[in-house]
Design a protein around this nucleic acid. Structure first.
Lengths: 245, 245
DNA sequence: GCAAAAGTGTTTGTCGTACACCCATGG
DNA sequence: CCATGGGTGTACGACAAACACTTTTGC
């Protein structure tokens, strides 16, 4: 199956990965590197989001899915199209122009930005052909194009969304502890939460189900494990507008 | 200023207008009409959203603003880019193909969809050159392209957003009554709200300010008028994450 | 037995909800 | 004086917030 790419439309993927151990919300970035012909100068050396042109016969969602599979090998991840970026000058700083000349793509490209949610450890980065690397959301490297802006807007959207929809569980293993959920909220929102109140609130939810299991291999008191039941959640929230204006 | 249009990228605008008198949430649509050469047959006769190609030198936001000004003469309206639509077959039903042949644009066009909020009576529709017309959100006519889908998604986004951000006031006159706000919520969400509880909740907000004015020209008890203070709202909500997971 | 993290309870105030009648006005 | 829509009050239960110590475990 050979697909013709559309020269001025791309998708870019902000891949959020949460690392339960280090309690770090990370973004997966790929290396952008170019030397001059004599190899005397480094022309471009920074990071960018993974992305690619949309092809003639695929939907935007399919393009994003394809790009992510190409980078990580993973499919069936939580995915959200959150914004289109199309300023005429979005690819116009010095390094971007060098890169575009080298890669030959359209100066006026608009990109449909997606974010994906997964666990950092799901991705095997050794020998990744794009030199992909995780960076903490609050400690990003130099970024090419308008990708810093894209990441920040994705993060804002994630902040809002995680308060209204149960998407945090996409960032956690199937079996998790209450404190892991709290740590994750704190990482995303950049705030401190009272542990006692948080516990009570979370355990009360019918869709948070205590398992007959505790953590193993932990050198301290092992914590109770819970799971999230999507089924229960969807039954409860069928038509549940809560008008908290 | 002559701008070259990009043949495969457009913006489409869902214009929501609220009519305080009839308590109707409306969408502004333009006529799509085409007869056969002999004028014997009506080939296309339905409605579509207003939209146009994005030009080479403008941002997506500017394109949407331009399109809206062209249709309504208005600027400085609340505007939100809410989603990009780009399925390969989004313009592929029978009437769309006839229309596209006639209008000569790219079969694989992706569109960045915006919605705008205003008061129905702000727009003068007499002699509108696009034969624009208001339709109640729950009683839409036959729509071309994928525009019904776009409108429904805009409405969903509006439903969510109006519960978390003070955007309802964009749909109301500067001076409004409590019952007008309630009617509007009910129109958007399609639900009934208890008047006593709603009043109390709304009046308690510091950014809802009672004026020294009542309705005039009303043939019944005139209601107290209020205004929304954006200043006060923004001061209060500087960093107000409320974790109601 | 100690370090580390898990887990637990109470109080106070606020808020959501359910519910039915009186009031002010213009005609 | 009446029809219409505006406006009001209370009680109950649920939830949010503030706050500090005990328990369990592996080592």
């Amino acid at each position: 199956m050979k697909l013709k790419k559309i020269s001025n439309i791309s998708v870019d993927c902000v891949v959020f990965g949460y690392d339960t151990l280090t309690k770090s919300l990370n973004v997966l970035l790929i290396k952008r590197y170019l030397e001059s012909k004599t190899e005397a100068d480094i022309l471009v050396d920074d990071y960018v989001l993974t992305g690619y042109h949309v092809c003639e016969n695929e939907t935007l969602d399919d393009a994003a899915t394809r790009v992510l599979k190409e980078l990580t090998g993973l499919t069936n991840l939580y995915k959200k199209q959150f914004k289109a970026f199309g300023d005429p000058d979005r690819l116009m700083n010095e390094k971007d122009l060098i890169w575009i000349k080298h890669e030959q793509f359209n100066l006026r490209t608009i990109t449909i930005a997606y974010y994906f949610l997964l666990k950092t450890e799901e991705v095997a980065l050794e020998e990744n052909k794009y030199q992909a690397k995780w960076f903490p959301i609050r400690n990003l490297p130099d970024l090419g194009f308008d990708h810093e802006k894209i990441i920040l807007e994705a993060h804002e959207d994630l902040k809002t969304k995680c308060l209204h929809e149960p998407i945090i569980f996409e960032l956690l293993p199937d079996k998790f502890t209450i404190n892991e959920v709290q740590d994750l909220y704190q990482s995303i929102l950049g705030i401190e939460i009272d542990n006692r109140n948080f516990r009570r609130k979370l355990i009360k939810k019918k869709y948070i189900i205590a398992l007959d299991e505790k953590q193993i291999g932990i050198s301290k008191k092992p914590a109770q494990l819970y799971m999230f039941s999507k089924d229960v959640y969807e039954k409860i929230f069928e038509k549940n507008y809560l008008i908290h204006i």
